[in-house]
């Protein structure tokens, strides 16, 4: 449910519930993307070398 849905009511229940939900989803999204960025960054810094070291 998004705040622009026609059933949306500006009341504490909606703010708390949907707020909590988007907070959790947002946190997860940021955490995963941060890791993706870091991984890509590591790769770029190493000059694109993408092969096994084993």
């Amino acid at each position: 449910m998004f705040p622009f849905a026609f059933e949306w009511i500006n009341d504490p229940s909606h703010f708390v519930f949907m707020g909590g939900f988007y907070f959790a989803l947002g946190g997860l999204f940021i955490a995963v993307n941060y890791c993706v960025m870091r991984a890509l960054f590591d790769w770029l810094c190493k000059g694109g070398e993408n092969h096994n070291e084993h």
């Binding site: 959790a24 946190g27 997860l28 955490a31 995963v32 941060y34 890791c35 993706v36 870091r38 991984a39 890509l40 590591d42 790769w43 190493k46 070398e49 993408n50 092969h51 096994n52 070291e53 084993h54």
Partner: peptide, 22 residues
Amino acid sequence: KFSVPRSFAHHLHEAMPTIAAI
């Protein structure tokens, strides 16, 4: 064997406390 997935996995491990808290 590949460096990108490897470092991705590594960073995910680092971020795990946040993810676990969520």
